[in-house]
Amino acid sequence: MAAKAPDRRRNNPPSHGTTPPVFLSSSSSGAVKPKQSSRSPDEIRKIFLRTGLISSVTGSSFLEIAPLKLSVSVLGPRPLPRTSSTPFAAQAILTTEVKFAPFASTVRRGYIRDSSERDLGSRLYQALVGAIRRELYPKSRIEVVVTILDSEDEGDDVNTVYIEEGKTTVETKFWDAGRSERALGVVLAGCITAASAALADAGIEMFDLVSGGVATSFVDEVNSKGKDKGDAVSNKLYVRDPAIALPEGKTPLATCVLGYMAARDEISELWISGKVGTKNGTTEMDELVDEAIAAARSARGVLNEAAKERVQFIVDKTGTAVPSKGETTDVEMSG
């Protein structure tokens, strides 16, 4: 008698175990309000970055920036398959792949990479390919695989206009044009930073570590609607590492994402989307790029610490027979 038919004449208990509900002591005090970001526009969010978490691959890292969580694995360098169709490669072949987990955003993602994921993959490739000393690894392949476990949402209802039934006018008064760019930008910057950490963890030789930075320029809402073009330049607000929610009363102009090699002062990947005026030559773009670089520099501090932590761990392990526990001190961001 493995499975008994439920007894219909009695109130049956649930077939599985239950957990008693836990209530907050008081609805007013315990309810956690979503924190309104109190950081200043030139401060980036705190980053958690740790390497070497996945033991089955050459190098790996895990990164968290507020809601964004992603893990990177680096496979290789390993030899290319010996088939007649494989061309000779004097330099290592780098492949990058970015995938959102199906549960990473409110709208479910399929298992097959969609166009935005493929695009992120090629952006990441562009950011890393120059930094790796590929000529040291001929006839081999390096694979970078990024899995995004959680992200700040891209597809919820701000860009969707809800009109109540009965109202006849369609006025799409508000449209956050830069929303998906900001969301993808933060993801891409995170991918770049984490992937460099993972490459360093894999012991792959690089010219420099690449860190990712994002910045968005905003103007006052009134200015954008009015006809005054270019005058809005004066009261531009630049936000580094922008959150998905808009600052009060502002509307986005342009978002800049870049991969930056701080030691060489070079940009390996650049992606600007939005409207950048050219009244004063490229000053407007320069300002935006400088902000993004500043964000990337801040992220570089964390990246350096993560790489150092790992090296320290390995040195400790090989130097003294007893591996000292990897120090887990948090790094305070210095803005």
């Binding site: 000529e135 991969g259 070079e266 390996s268 990947e269 600007i272 409207k275 773009m285």
Partner: peptide, 22 residues
């Protein structure tokens, strides 16, 4: 007006190694 800038993949065919990476 600039509405977008993207980096383009190039061959980096001719230069010496270690010259310019970005």
């Amino acid at each position: 007006d600039i509405v977008g800038v993207r980096s383009m993949e190039v061959g980096r065919g001719g230069g010496k190694e270690g010259d310019r990476k970005g």
